[in-house]
Each structure stands twice: as C-alpha cells, then as structure tokens.
Computed example of a mutant assay.
Amino acid sequence: MTLFPAPVPAFSRALSPAFFGRDPVAVARELLGCLIVRVYPEGAATLRIVETEAYDCPRDPSCHVIERLPGASEALHGPPGRYYFHRSYEHALLNVVCMPVGHDATILVRAAEVVSGLELLRARRAVKRDPDLSNGPAKLVQALGICPELAGLEIDQPGCYFVPGEPLPPERLSVTARVGLRRGAELPWRFLETGNPWVSPGKPSA
C-alpha cells in the first residue's frame, strides 16, 4: 500500500512557537493527534503524533537526562517553541522547548504514525515493518532527517512544521509513567493513543 502522494497540510496552518509557551504536561497531551509535516526537495511527508512525554525541570528529578549535554541548559532556558535535540545512547531525540524564558521544560515526541509520504521516509530509514519507521523517538528523527538541521530554530520552519489535528477522545488516550527513567519514574507524564501500532514498544518506568 502507498500513502504518497497525498494532500499536505498548508504551512499557513502551522502551530506557532507561542503554542509551546505553556505547561509541558498540557502541551504533551494536546500534541496527540497533531501532525508533523516534513518537506523534502522531492516531496513532503505527513505524520500524526501518537506518543509524547513531558519534562518540567523545576518539579521533575529526571531532567538530568535532557540537561546532560553541553548547551542543553541554555537551550531549555527558552524562548519556547524551539527545536531541541538531546541524545540517548548516541541517538538524537526530538524535543520542543516549553514555558516562558527561564523555566526549563520540554516535550519529547516519542512516536508518530505516517499519514502520507511513506516512500520518502522509507528512503531515509530501511525497515521491514512500516511502524518501525517512526515508532520510537530515535527512529522518528532518523526517518525525518531533521537533526542537526533544525536544532535551536523556531518550530514553524517551512521545511518542518507542526499542524493542529483532530483532538484525541478520552477513550483513546492512555497516560503512563515515562520510559527508561530512574528518577521521576512515578510521574504520569507519558501520553499515547491506546492500541495504536505506531506507539513505541518502550515499557513505562514504573
């Protein structure tokens, strides 16, 4: 089955940086169902976000995970609505900075379901199963090919932008602890679409 070509959401609909200048827990939840549009020279791909995590450093002991790289603290300090990439086991993971300047917080986009542009993503990440293109944070970044190109830039870039989607109804929303953490493992700040095969296979920490 092919999902390309297909209509691409217009850049004029892109979420602005101001959307992210709020509580990261609220932003992480509201991003479920939103779309990521990635524009390449040969076409565009659209993915629907199905899994996110929130990190709010003043009240979150796990923030050492995202602050351990040189320059990380400065990036998280704001302004909000900027792309930020932290690394886990040498893999880049997609974050967006949240909250006003001076309040270190971010959301991590963990997984997204391909809506269109499947062939374009396959060209950048060879897999046997389509969900393995983007059913994890490192896989998603590799398939999109966005790091380090977008690091530090505002979220509304013509080459990659977020678009509002259909809100996820409560019966399709699951909330769990985040994945792979020792500190702050009890915080229920991971949001995902229940039963979606494109959600990452990672197990909650608690």
Rank of each mutant, 00 (worst) to 15 (best):
T2F: 09
T2C: 04
F11C: 01
L15A: 12
L15V: 06
P17F: 12
F20Q: 10
V25N: 14
A26S: 15
V27C: 07
R29Q: 15
L35P: 00
R38V: 02
R38A: 09
V39T: 14
G43F: 08
R48P: 02
A54F: 05
Y55H: 13
C57W: 11
I66L: 11
I66G: 08
L69N: 10
L76G: 05
G78P: 06
R87C: 07
S88L: 08
E90C: 02
H91P: 00
A92T: 02
C98P: 08
V101Y: 09
H103S: 11
H103D: 13
A105R: 11
T106L: 14
S116L: 07
L118H: 07
L121I: 00
A126L: 11
N135K: 07
V141W: 02
E149W: 03
E149C: 00
G152Y: 08
L153K: 15
P158V: 05
C160T: 01
P167S: 13
P167L: 11
L168A: 03
P170G: 06
R172D: 12
A177Q: 11
R178N: 09
G180C: 10
R183M: 10
L187Y: 13
R190L: 04
T194M: 02
N196H: 13
P197I: 08
V199E: 07
S205P: 08
